[in-house]
Amino acid sequence: MTTTTDARADEGYTGAVARVYDLVHQGKGKDYAGEAADLADLVTGRVPGARSLLDVACGTGLHLAHLAGRFERVEGLELSPDMLAAARRRNPSTTVHHGDMRDFSLETTYSAVTCMFSSIGHMADQGELDAALAAFAAHTEPGGVVVVEPWWFPDTFTPGYVGAAVVEAEGKTISRVSHSRLEDGATRIDVHYLVAEPGRDIEHLSESHRITLFPRSAYELAFERASLATEFLPGGPSGRGLFIGVRA
């Protein structure tokens, strides 16, 4: 017997999906420790003596767990209540704020503000992208850096892409299948999970997200409007590159 749980489009990673999120991505080979080390090196290479970092859209806090030992003060910000709860459980000694990247105000600044795993792609349009970068810049010390991992650009996105993985972790076997299509200048990605474990019914989870296909110029414009001198580094942890902005 199979039970089904649906996450409505664009509500974020909630409920049961949030619980299997880490298991799937770690099982697929996402190296959170290595990515955190590379990110810390990138920050300190541009800001020698960097002491603090805010990770925006920190998810369940796996990057935070590895960044905590690299800076005197590391904090997170997350919109999804379920992801936020997981991040706080994983990082009991780390402050993780509840907030929206478009309009948060923490009344402090950091040596670096980061936004990884293409979370910025959930901004709906240029106005929201500008608002997010303005918020990042407002929380960055003079001379500090903003690091953003973008979603695919329109010319690098592959419409119709299908991804699939099967992982085994914590006594569960989880299959994940995703399908990405072009939808009015954005990626519509539908994801389905089957979660099986001994003695329980197979659980079917699904979610759908709209992720905007901003061109590179849109990101650069948002950085410019936020008074951040920017450069683009190809590659990055997911092959989508990294934008680095320095606050004058």
Results as ranks from 00 to 15, higher is better:
E170R: 15
A169Q: 12
R176Q: 15
Y193W: 14
P159R: 05
V147M: 01
Y193H: 12
T156Y: 06
F136M: 03
V167W: 07
W151P: 08
H204P: 02
K172Y: 14
A135D: 04
V148I: 15
R200C: 10
F157L: 04
P142V: 01
I202A: 13
G185K: 00
H204E: 13
V147Q: 01
E197M: 12
V147H: 00
G143P: 02
G171T: 10
G199C: 04
D190I: 10
A169N: 08
A164P: 07
V195Q: 12
P142Y: 05
G171A: 08
T158P: 03
F214N: 01
V147N: 01
L205A: 09
V195D: 03
I202S: 06
T173A: 14
A134I: 00
L194T: 11
T187C: 13
T173W: 09
R210M: 03
G199R: 00
T173D: 11
P198L: 11
H209T: 08
V146F: 06
V195L: 13
L182C: 02
F157P: 07
A134N: 05
R216P: 07
L213Y: 10
F153I: 12
F157D: 00
D201H: 04
T158K: 15
R181T: 15
A134M: 02
R210S: 00
E183T: 11
T158C: 06
R210K: 01
I202D: 05
A164L: 11
T173P: 07
A196R: 14
I202G: 03
S206W: 04
R210A: 01
H139E: 01
A138T: 07
I189R: 03
D155N: 14
P215R: 11
V195I: 14
T173M: 13
R188L: 15
P198K: 09
H192C: 09
L133H: 06
G143N: 06
A196E: 07
E207W: 03
D190L: 11
D201L: 02
E168W: 03
A137D: 00
V162P: 09
F153A: 15
A165Y: 11
D190S: 15
H179W: 03
R210E: 02
E141C: 12
E170L: 12
R200W: 08
A135T: 13
L182Y: 13
R181N: 09
A138D: 01
W151V: 05
V177T: 11
I189A: 08
E149H: 04
W152F: 15
E197Y: 09
E170Q: 15
V191Q: 07
E149N: 00
I174L: 12
A169W: 03
T140Q: 02
V147E: 02
F136T: 03
E183M: 07
G185F: 05
H139G: 05
A138H: 08
A196G: 04
D184K: 06
P150S: 10
L205C: 10
F157N: 08
H179V: 06
F136I: 01
Y161P: 00
P150W: 09
V146H: 08
A135H: 01
H204M: 08
G160A: 06
R210P: 03
A135P: 02
D155G: 12
V147G: 03
